[in-house]
Amino acid sequence: MSVPSTATHEGLPVGKLSAYFDWLQMLTGAALILFMWCHLILVSSILLGPGVMNALAWFFEVTYMAQVGGPLIFLAFLLHFVLAARKIPFATGQQRLMLANAKRMRHTDTWLWVIQATTAMGILIMGGIHMWVVLTNLPITAEKSAARIQTGFWFVFYLFLLPMVELHVGIGFYRILVKWGFLDRPGRWVIKKKENLLTGIFIAIGLLSLLRYYFLPLK
């Protein structure tokens, strides 16, 4: 029994909700990371040619991975948002404390968290729009995607969304590893370097794919 910090007639029982939420936050985060890696394969397959991408998209379609998996990912996305947002300070006083602390200490990991929390808000809005647009306009084909991106508006839209997602995912991956004790102290520095490199590569592949869509000749 912990000593209650407020005067109730008896100590409030400590439920397991915090633990369940932490599990779910981590598991939805991990599921979204896995999804983003698959997503990258699909999107960047355009670099190998529209035929390859269409074949992959067709595969996801006939196996119902797009129709069933898509909404499931959307659900995981929303669940993850609700759970993780509990950690984001909404009171300006707290936001200033966090920022001032990161600046004062010149501490990378605290900065990484600030980046994670800010990109999260961008992803919530832009990722939500993106998922809606794609999932209400199935099937996915290289031509439809290219047409969208060539409007110009979507090209710029993705130029913002891409780095935000990759940063959030990269930092999130690192954070799961440290929070759940998968890394020892030396291992932390090794992973951080690799993770930065990986994030850089993913952003580069994403940019190349975007350019490819932009210049893909439309029939």
């Binding site: 912990s2 400590v14 397991k16 633990a19 939420f21 950690k87 501490h107 990991d109 440290v178 929070k179």
Partner: peptide
Amino acid sequence: EYFDIIGTDEGIFGCMGLLACQD
């Protein structure tokens, strides 16, 4: 009994893994 003390958002599940403490 340990869970009742630290298995909360004020305890271990509140930690966001910023590792400033370690550093």
